[in-house]
Design a protein around this nucleic acid. Structure first.
Length: 881
RNA sequence: GCGGACGUGGCGGAACUGGUAGACGCAAGGGACUUAAAAUCCCUCGUCCGCAAGGACAUCCGGGUUCGAUUCCCGGCGUCCGCACCA
């Protein structure tokens, strides 16, 4: 074997070709072995992969390759989340068709992914913009419609004035569109909705079963679903005070116990009662307008003062007909939570307290904290929200909060007005239905026809897919489908009269809500899934992606899986058994004097680590080294994976992505770090090269006995094998990497020793040669999932005729991990003073005697006898002085 | 405000279920090889006292439980993230 440097560029292409030709990463649906489905969140085809993709897919590939070696039938597919706005933006800016742009990008990114050497089953590749994919999505939309999970309703929607489209609540961040960043407007539109709220309780409950999900994501989803238990109360309105004959105001409360502390009622500015009252009150109408004009961004809400307008209407207290409360329209009441109306109990709710303090309505405490005299308990600026006993509350006095809630609920449930009870227990959710209509071209058409006579008519199965027309224009804002000359004009499938096609397309999150199921049988033409096959593969055993999808994508997919089950396409509820959210790739920023940023490739850095200076290569202009931030185009702190792969090879990039930083945390990309990874690839190549020389002379049969040097090496090899296996299993890739480093050093030391004893030549006795060969094989198998190309190269050098990609994971020889003689730390009062060497299964008394005999222990005891000696077998000895 | 996570050398980080704190890597210092450089190999590397042997301190801070705490409990401080006028 040559001692030349490992040429990653040449070797990587060669091995990729061999893997490809042999099709070794294609998984078969009828393979009888245990299945393992590992999936990384599929990319949007933006044009180029970025380092975040490299990190994400490397992690998935390590899992896939390891599980494959362990004998699983592994499914590791890749596809494209191919619909979306950027394609239309490109069309508008560059006059390129969204489809052409998307497919060009897919081709480019696929080549990049291939250069990473990922063990993907490309035969299962899919793109969501392919009619062969979205045909099934349209069919499922109709299935769901039939099953009552789709609804068409007029509602106030979030309108993004820049993207000219509707956004789901989940896509509005701080009052701005998640893509455009534009301030979102409220508009009233008729939209299609998926009834995700029908599963609110189920989606919430099942979070408890997702044991292999990060706690953080589970918490975020729980909060998002936002369950609260309370009481709906119908307050009668004083007929003398109403303007248009209204008789009731329905509110939702989680604190019915505080009903005797009520001081006012309040409704949202867009509540029907407010609108009705405004008709006869110009000032109120103006107030409502003012409220609507106010933004909903975080800062504005933070600073907005509580404002209200007394409508003059009065509501009657449900427990006292003679007690009436003023009804306000207030800016802090949200129409889309509960009923859009509340009763205000200022003593025990901060917002209500702020409100009454402003309008002089006063407060009456009704919950008295423990150990406080009710007579002297007053609330001024801070509402009391803690525990206590009821006071000032007539029949509730003395009860706990829980008892009072129960009592109020019981009484109001019994009381009737008309046919309805005055009070009704209700569970309220924060979760809203998922509005999926988008006024865009590059998305999945909603398969519906609107007929003047028949109304909303589903497109018949035989006419699916409803394909996007190719001849569209992007010269004007708005939806190209809507202004297409012919596309929307169709005959009604039911009555045959002229009708109009739905021109809205589906939210792209629909596309990604079921792709994991499609991968199980991506060519199936007749249905979205073959249920038996999908059920055999699913749930995904390990899903890996960014935390940014903690709510949207992951919640939608959970809903979709349930909806598909209902429609008969799947037999399970939860799509992802294991979820891992990886950290970001971050990099230093470089700021020029004029405030703009320079790219890493444009600058040169010198000086010691604590006094680094950067300058622009082109001009020598000094550059300020800025904070480490997420790689982004705007900060220009990105590194192109292509450049790295061309310079160092894919294995180096993969290795660096896994080293040092734990996978869930951010990894800082540094030139030094990459070089370290690159040096290690070369070192491995050298070490395996030297090992090959010795392995050559190894006997074919395993020797009967091993001398101490061979035994030590074998113990290290099997120890490393056990530790790396465990670390990879827990996705602690940085720990696995550390153990591989460690073991490489051990092997290197053993090779040097063997050489020294053989007088500088490759040699040594048979047992050493055999152990070296075994150690080298184990080492290569261990780093293969991380650096697969180098591993193949080394594997071949070691004389194997097979591929390491197809080699089984080595079995640990458990006996090698058990030492006959062990070294135990000896503590005195919890501080380590010495080590004691004892037989592994020595009796506690023997260990104790040996420990006490040690000179440092005696010194620490100062000649006095120990009070107590604690011997933890095979762990530690602690002497208590 | 509510919820979650985290806090360990110059840096990234490791440490099983309460049992030798600092594995492994980066950076730094010293040495070998070389005409030289690169590459490679070897040694040192938490802080303080000490020539050394050895000792003291040390996992954000303050308490507690324990023979023993980075790990468990209580109370602070700080950082990051998510949600947020949610009745």
């Amino acid at each position: 074997m040559s001692t030349e440097r490992y040429n990653a560029r040449e070797a990587e292409a060669r091995w990729q070709k061999i893997w490809d030709e042999r099709g070794i990463f294609a998984s078969k649906n009828d393979d009888p072995r245990s299945r393992y489905y590992v999936l990384e969140m599929f990319p949007y085809p933006s044009g180029r992969i970025h380092m975040g993709h490299v990190r994400n897919y490397t992690m998935g590939d390590v899992v896939a390759r390891t599980k494959r070696a362990m004998g699983f039938n592994v499914l590791h597919p890749m596809g494209w989340d191919a619909f979306g706005m950027p394609a239309e933006n490109a069309a508008m800016e560059r006059k390129v068709h969204p489809k052409a742009w998307t497919y060009q990008n897919i081709a480019a990114m696929k080549a990049q992914l291939k250069s990473m050497g990922l063990s993907l089953d490309w035969a299962r590749e899919l793109a969501t913009c392919d009619p062969a994919y979205y045909k099934h999505q349209q069919k499922m939309f109709l299935d769901f419609l039939k099953g009552g999970l789709v609804e068409r309703k007029s509602s106030k929607v979030n309108w993004d004035p820049v993207d000219n489209t509707v956004l789901a609540n989940e896509q509005v961040i701080d009052g701005r569109g998640w893509r455009s960043g534009a301030l979102v407007e409220q508009r009233e539109l008729t939209q299609w909705f998926f009834k995700i709220t029908a599963y609110a309780q189920e989606l919430l409950d099942a979070i408890d079963t997702l044991e292999r999900w990060p706690e953080k994501v589970r918490t975020m989803q729980r909060n998002w679903i936002g369950r609260s238990e309370g009481l709906l109360i119908r307050f009668a309105l004083d007929p003398q005070t109403v303007k248009n004959g209204e008789s009731e105001l329905e509110i939702f409360t989680t604190r019915p116990d505080t009903l005797f502390g009520a001081k006012f009622m309040a409704v949202a500015p867009d509540h029907p009662l407010a609108a009705a009252a405004a008709k006869k009150d110009a000032k109120l109408a103006a107030f409502i307008e003012e409220c609507k004009r106010r933004g909903t961004s975080a800062e504005e809400i933070e600073t907005a003062e509580k404002m209200g307008y007394d409508t003059g209407i009065r509501a009657v207290h449900p427990f006292d007909p003679s007690w009436t409360l003023p009804v306000y329209v207030a800016n802090f009441i949200l129409m889309d939570y509960g009923t859009g109306a509340i009763f205000g109990c200022p003593a025990h709710d901060q917002r209500d307290l702020d409100f009454v303090n402003k309008y002089g309505l006063g407060n009456t405490p009704v919950v008295c904290p423990p150990d406080v005299d009710p007579q002297s308990f007053v609330v001024t600026d801070t509402a009391y929200v803690g525990d206590g006993r009821m006071v000032n509350s007539r029949f509730l006095d003395g009860m706990t909060i829980a008892q009072a809630k129960e009592e109020v609920a019981k009484r109001l449930e019994k009381e009737k007005r008309g046919n309805h009870p005055v009070g009704e227990r209700k569970v309220n959710f924060r979760l809203r239905d998922w509005g999926i209509s988008r006024q865009r071209y590059w998305g999945c058409p909603i398969p519906i026809i609107h007929c003047h006579v028949c109304g909303v008519v589903p497109v018949p199965d035989a006419d699916l897919p409803v394909k996007l027309p190719d001849d569209v224009t992007f010269d004007k804002p708005g939806n190209p489908l809507d202004r297409h000359p012919t596309w929307k004009h169709v005959k009604c499938p039911r009555c045959g009269k002229d009708a109009r096609r739905e021109t809205d397309t589906m939210d792209t999150f629909v596309d990604s809500s079921w792709y994991f199921a499609r991968f199980t049988d991506p060519q199936l033409a007749t249905a979205p899934t073959d249920k038996a096959i999908a059920d055999a593969w699913l749930p995904v055993d390990q899903y890996i992606g960014g935390i940014e999808h903690a709510i949207l994508h992951l919640l939608y997919s959970r809903f979709f899986t349930r909806a598909m089950k209902k429609a008969g396409h799947l037999g399970l509820d939860e799509p992802f058994a294991g979820l891992f959210t990886q950290g970001m790739v971050v990099h230093e920023t470089y700021r020029k004097a004029d405030g703009t940023f320079a790219a890493p490739a444009e600058i040169e850095i010198d000086g010691a680590e604590d006094a680094r200076r950067a300058k622009l290569i082109a001009t020598g202009e000094p550059i300020e080294i800025g904070p480490i931030e997420k790689m982004s185009k705007s900060k220009r702190n990105t590194v192109d994976p292509d450049d790295i792969i061309a310079t160092y090879g894919a294995d180096t990039a993969r290795w660096f992505m896994l080293s040092d930083s734990p996978p869930e945390r951010d990894v800082n990309w540094t030139e030094k770090g990459v070089q370290g990874a690159w040096r290690f690839t070369q070192r491995l190549w050298r070490v395996i090269g030297e090992a090959t020389e010795i392995a050559k002379i190894a006997p074919a049969a395993k020797p009967q006995a091993f001398g101490p040097p061979a035994l030590t090496l074998r113990k290290a090899a099997h120890g490393a094998l056990a530790k790396v296996t465990d670390a990879v299993d827990k996705l602690h890739f940085n720990v696995a990497v550390a153990h591989i480093y460690e073991f490489t050093s051990v092997l290197q030391g053993a090779l040097n020793d063997a050489k020294a004893t053989a007088g500088g030549k490759a040699g040594g006795s048979g047992d050493i040669a055999w152990a070296v060969r075994e150690a080298a094989d184990i080492l290569v198998t261990l780093f293969n999932p991380m650096m697969p190309h180098l591993a193949e190269e080394c594997w071949a050098a070691l004389g194997h005729k097979t591929l390491v990609a197809e080699a089984p994971w080595p079995a640990v020889e458990g006996a090698l991990l058990i030492e006959d003689v062990i070294v135990l730390p000896v503590q005195v009062n919890g501080k380590k003073r010495a080590d004691v060497t004892v037989p592994r299964d020595a009796a506690a008394g023997v260990v104790e005697a040996a420990a006490l005999a040690l000179e440092p222990v005696q010194r620490a005891l100062g000649g006095k006898p120990p009070k107590k000696v604690i011997v933890v077998p095979q762990r530690i000895v602690n002497v208590v002085a």
